[in-house]
């Protein structure tokens, strides 16, 4: 089913989508309507325009492809499924995400991938082609974040406070020199073969969606951030 959103209020648009049994949903002229794909599990969305806040929030298995930019809280508390963004993405992307994959061709805003967590067969993945804002992967508990740094000219592709409070998972940053000024909760190492093998299938997906050469991307220098086991939450307290 194909919808034209234009100036339709989001609740009305969402109702039309809810009442539609089709698996394939195409929305044209999307002008920032919120919550598209929120808490859905078996749909294929193709969205043309700009997706509003809460795109694919609580997504439980749907695939959402956006030909345009996205606003805030994309894939917030997502459980599974895939979100593919042919453009840039706003703040708080993938917050508390437990599973599924988000691919962003361009840049992502502040607070991306905060408190992502993995569980059993669920493993959240956030791949960003460009750069990320501050607070990337704070409180990270599981899953994988990779920032490929297009347009960063080999400099650290994210801003301040990357990985603060990180206690699980992995953040991979493409940059020519070892990132400086990271919080004490993270350890920084150059990417090894194991990391490369883990990253490769996601880069293959990225290139499938957005073009580009897998080998060429992976031939760059990457640094891997993991939690520092000696700076955990263990030694923080004494009791009354």
């Amino acid at each position: 089913m194909e919808f034209t959103a234009n100036t339709t209020y989001y609740q009305q648009l969402q109702n039309q989508i809810r009442n539609c049994d089709d698996k394939e949903i195409i929305i044209k002229e999307l002008y920032g309507q919120r919550y598209i794909g929120c808490a859905t599990s078996d749909k294929n969305f193709k969205l043309y325009g700009t997706a509003g806040n809460g795109l694919g929030q609580y997504n439980n298995g749907s695939t959402i492809e956006v030909f345009g930019n996205c606003q805030e809280a994309v894939g917030d508390t997502m459980n599974s499924g895939e979100i593919i963004i042919h453009g840039n993405c706003g703040d708080a992307c993938g917050y508390g995400m437990r599973g599924g994959k988000i691919f962003i061709q361009g840049d992502v805003g502040y607070r991306a991938g905060i408190h992502m967590k993995a569980y059993m067969d669920k493993f959240p993945v956030l791949i960003v082609g460009g750069k990320a804002g501050s607070f990337l992967g704070e409180y990270l508990a599981g899953g994988l974040i990779a920032i490929l740094g297009n347009g960063a000219q080999g400099k650290m592709p994210c801003s301040y406070f990357c990985g603060t409070g990180m206690h699980g998972g992995k953040i991979i940053l493409r940059c020519d020199e070892k990132p400086e000024g990271l919080p004490e909760q993270v350890l920084v190492n150059e990417m090894n073969e194991e990391d490369r093998a883990e990253l490769t299938p996601y880069i293959e997906d990225y290139c499938k969606y957005f073009g580009g050469n897998v080998k060429e991307i992976l031939s760059n220098r990457f640094y891997v951030l993991t939690p520092n086991p000696n700076s955990g939450y263990n030694q923080l307290y004494t009791f009354e």
């Binding site: 805030e72 917050y95 408190h115 569980y119 599981g142 699980g168 955990g232 939450y233």
Partner: peptide
């Protein structure tokens, strides 16, 4: 969440 991992609830909702 996986067994034997810290369950941290951040002070704010970051969204």
């Amino acid at each position: 969440i996986p067994e034997k991992t810290d369950a941290i609830s951040p002070a704010p909702h970051h969204d």
